[in-house]
C-alpha cells in the first residue's frame, strides 16, 4: 500500500511538473495518432459510405471482411508493415522504419477498418429519404452523397473518434515500427511498457494516468456525438 501511494504521489508530481519525457511522449502519441486518423478518415469514410449506399454482389463478404479487420491485432499490422518498409522490403528505399512516419502508416492501417465500419453502420442507419430528396431537388449523384455525409456528420465524427481512441491506446505498432526511440518515436504506450519493465513505475503510472484521461475524453466526446 505504502509503495502504491508513494508511486502515485511521484506520478502526479511528474505530471504537474510537466516533466520533459512525459510531455514529449504525450505529444508524440497524439501527433502520430492525429496524422493516422487524418489519413484513415480520407480512406475510411468514403469506403464506408460507398459500401453503405451501393448494392453489389459480394457486399456481405466485404462487410464481413471489414468487421474482421476491425479486430486486426496490432502486432500483425506491425509485422506486415515492418516487412514492407524494412530496407529489405519492397518500400525499403524510403528508409522510414523507426520513424514517426512508419508508425503513422501502421496506425492508419489499423484505423481504416474502424472508421470505415462505423461510417458504414451510420450510413446503414441513415434515413432512406435523404438521397432521393437530394436527387429530386436537382443534386447529382455525388452531390447527393455529399449531402448524405453532411446529414450524418455526427455519426461520421463518432467513427473518426473511435478510430483515434484505438490508435492512441495501441502499443504493438508503435513499438515495432517506431522502435521506442527516446524523444522521437517514444509514445505514451511504449514508454509505459518500457518504464514498467525497468521498474520506473512512477513514470509509467504518470503516462498511464494521462492516457486514461485522453481515453476518457475521447469516450466522452463519442457519447455526446452518439446522442445527437
Amino acid at each position: 500500500m505504502e509503495f502504491l501511494a508513494e508511486t502515485f504521489r511521484t506520478a502526479i508530481a511528474l505530471i504537474l511538473s510537466l516533466d520533459g519525457e512525459v510531455v514529449t511522449a504525450v505529444a508524440t502519441s497524439i501527433s502520430v495518432a492525429l496524422w493516422s486518423i487524418l489519413f484513415a478518415t480520407l480512406a475510411g469514410v468514403p469506403a464506408g459510405v460507398a459500401v453503405g449506399i451501393t448494392e453489389f454482389p459480394g457486399k456481405r463478404l466485404v462487410i464481413t471482411i471489414l468487421n474482421t479487420l476491425m479486430a486486426l491485432p496490432t502486432v500483425v499490422v506491425g509485422l506486415a508493415v515492418y516487412g514492407i518498409i524494412s530496407r529489405q522490403g519492397p518500400l525499403g528505399e524510403l528508409g522510414i522504419l523507426f520513424t514517426p512516419k512508419a508508425m503513422i502508416i501502421g496506425q492508419t492501417v489499423l484505423a481504416i477498418p474502424i472508421v470505415a465500419n462505423f461510417t458504414l453502420s451510420t450510413v446503414k442507419g441513415a434515413d432512406p429519404r435523404i438521397i432521393p430528396t437530394a436527387l429530386t431537388l436537382g443534386a447529382g449523384p455525388f452531390q447527393s452523397v455529399l449531402q448524405l455525409a453532411k446529414e450524418l456528420r455526427f455519426g461520421i465524427m463518432a467513427a473518426v473518434i473511435a478510430g483515434f481512441g484505438r490508435v492512441i491506446a495501441e502499443v504493438g505498432v508503435a513499438m515495432m515500427l517506431g522502435g521506442n526511440i527516446r524523444g522521437y518515436t517514444r509514445t505514451m504506450t511504449t514508454a509505459i511498457a518500457m518504464e514498467t519493465g525497468k521498474g520506473e513505475f512512477a513514470l509509467g503510472l504518470a503516462l498511464g494516468i494521462i492516457l486514461m484521461a485522453v481515453a476518457l475524453l475521447v469516450n466522452l466526446f463519442l457519447n455526446i456525438l452518439q446522442q445527437r
Binding site: 496524422w35 487524418l38 503513422i104 522521437y184
Partner: peptide, 12 residues
Amino acid sequence: IMLCTVASAEDR
C-alpha cells in the same frame, strides 16, 4: 501538435 513530428529537419 501534428507538425511536431514532421518538422524535424535535422540529420538523424
